[in-house]
């Protein structure tokens, strides 16, 4: 909405080719029935995500960030407005996206390696057994789980389970990645390592990403654009382009002046809202 934003979008070389937006929220809002009353989780919101763009959504708890991901994935239908993917309204499960939910959804009866492999076992992919095995090993290496392939989720720490879930989502290289606080439970060091790998992988595989986080620093480090939400009922308060040069060094970028400026500017937007955030 801010005019400066529109100008920047036009200046973006990727926008210049007039590609269709990958994801478009057109006045998409969501209300839930809770204990007989109606709860507005998300005010009707407009947001376009371009192909191969990395968009981070930040805001207080319960501001509808996860609701947006659920609607893009087709797990929820908007109460008003519509969500488009590749120009088509999303009315059923959206199989073009890989979704790493906040909730732990590993299959407890499968070992780490078997959990990571599951997408390659499906008929729609028909990957040969040897091929799948090689890709699983490569993925396990990438997320640093070597030696834990045969462990069941119940034997892994919270952080390790997050990494298995990440590997499981990345292995089939969906063209769009939806991530809901993927690194919330990790220690700071490991988080930086995985942010680095995520940045490399999504650039390499030309993925479009919507990334929900509480951590403003994480958002600025990774994103092309950061969307700040207000407290419930969730509403887009600000969309800010992050013009830090790429590739970014996730370990050092947070100590640059440009980063500090962005952080301060966005924190000013966010801080009023954080206090108002409520968990349902």
């Amino acid at each position: 909405m801010p005019p400066s934003d529109v100008a920047m979008k036009a200046a973006d070389p990727r926008a210049a080719s007039r590609e269709l937006e990958k994801i478009r929220l057109a006045g998409a809002g969501k209300r839930f029935m809770v204990r007989g009353g109606e709860l507005e989780a998300l005010r009707p919101a407009d947001l376009d995500v371009r192909p191969r763009e990395f968009v981070a959504l930040v805001g207080p708890s319960g501001c509808g960030k996860s609701t947006i991901l659920n609607m893009v994935a087709g797990l929820l239908q908007p109460s008003e407005g519509a969500v488009f993917y590749d120009g088509q309204p999303v009315t059923a499960i959206n199989r073009a996206v890989g979704y790493m939910t906040q909730k732990d959804t590993l299959l407890p009866w499968r070992s780490a390696a078997d959990n990571i492999r599951i997408s390659l076992e499906l008929k729609c992919r028909s990957v040969s057994r040897g091929d799948a095995e090689a890709r699983v090993m490569q993925m396990i290496d990438l997320v640093g789980l070597k030696g834990f392939e045969r462990h069941y989720p119940s034997e892994l720490s919270g952080g390790m389970r997050k990494r298995v879930a990440l590997a499981r989502t990345l292995i089939y290289e969906p063209e769009t990645l939806l991530m809901d606080e993927p690194f919330g439970a990790l220690d700071a060091q490991l988080k930086l390592l995985l942010l680095d790998q995520l940045q490399e992988l999504t650039t390499l595989r030309r993925m479009t990403v919507m990334f929900v986080t509480h951590d403003l620093g994480e958002a600025i480090t990774l994103a092309d654009r950061v969307v700040v939400f207000s407290a419930r009922p969730g509403r887009i308060r600000k969309i800010r382009d992050i013009d830090l040069p790429r590739p970014r060094d996730v370990f050092k970028v947070r100590f640059t002046e440009a980063f500090a400026k962005l952080h301060e500017e966005l924190w000013d937007e966010l801080k009023d809202e954080v206090g108002k955030g409520t968990d349902v």
């Binding site: 199989r95 890989g98 979704y99 499906l122 008929k123 729609c124 089939y172």
Partner: peptide, 15 residues
């Protein structure tokens, strides 16, 4: 939610 996970990956009802 476990079913949604594999559905998003493209599973059939049988899978």
């Amino acid at each position: 939610d476990l079913i949604s996970v594999v559905e998003l990956m493209g599973s059939t009802p049988r899978e």
